[in-house]
Simulated scan of single mutants.
Amino acid sequence: MILIILNIIFCVAFLGFAYVNLNDVDAVLWVTIYMVAAVCCGLVAYGLYYPVIYLAAIAFYLVYAIILFFAKDGVRDWMMKYNRPSIVETMQAEKPYIEKTREFFGLLIVAGALAIDYFAI
């Protein structure tokens, strides 16, 4: 029962994340990323589970997160070069590292949610 409730929360959250990315420059990529996670979590809430899709999505999200971590003005630069300033002060990504760092953490959240399902079921 707890897993079902958790997946409903994840599904609604990922639908919201997809919605706020509709006006982004790379909307197709990010809406797809969040919608795949929302659908997977929604299906689990209905008792449907596809482990191969979960593994493929988790692998994609983690590989993309690694790419963002090491990219120019990515997470590593945010930590080392810029000394970890706040990335949540405004919604506008005014500094070059803000967008990649936020995307990195979004990917970790999605991969974590899918990993919970993968290992719990």
Rank of each mutant, 00 (worst) to 15 (best):
M1I: 06
I2N: 15
I2E: 14
I2Y: 08
L3G: 07
L3S: 10
I4P: 06
I5E: 11
N7T: 00
N7R: 07
I8T: 04
I8C: 04
F10K: 06
F10W: 14
F10G: 05
C11P: 06
V12C: 13
V12Q: 13
A13M: 12
A13C: 12
F14Y: 13
F14T: 03
L15V: 07
G16Y: 07
G16D: 10
A18C: 05
Y19M: 10
V20C: 10
N23H: 00
D24I: 04
V25D: 14
V25S: 05
A27D: 00
V28P: 12
L29I: 05
L29A: 09
L29T: 13
W30E: 03
V31F: 00
Y34Q: 05
Y34E: 04
Y34R: 00
M35G: 06
V36G: 04
A38M: 02
A38W: 07
V39R: 01
C40W: 03
C40R: 02
G42E: 06
A45C: 05
A45K: 05
Y46C: 15
Y50C: 11
Y50R: 07
Y50N: 12
P51H: 05
P51M: 04
P51I: 03
V52R: 13
L55E: 08
A56D: 01
A57E: 09
A57S: 15
I58D: 00
A59I: 13
L62F: 02
L62G: 02
A65W: 08
I66E: 08
L68F: 01
F69G: 15
A71W: 13
K72S: 13
K72I: 01
K72F: 07
D73F: 02
G74K: 02
V75M: 11
V75A: 13
R76M: 15
R76E: 14
D77Q: 11
M79Q: 06
M79E: 04
M80K: 12
K81Q: 11
S86H: 06
V88Y: 09
E89N: 09
T90E: 07
T90M: 00
T90A: 07
T90H: 07
A93R: 12
E94K: 10
K95Q: 15
P96W: 00
Y97M: 08
I98Q: 09
I98H: 00
I98A: 04
E99H: 10
E99A: 08
K100Q: 13
K100A: 14
T101W: 01
R102K: 06
R102I: 04
E103V: 08
F104V: 11
L107D: 05
L108T: 11
I109A: 15
V110M: 08
G112F: 01
L114G: 05
A115W: 15
I116M: 14
D117G: 09
D117T: 04
Y118T: 10
A120G: 01
I121Q: 15
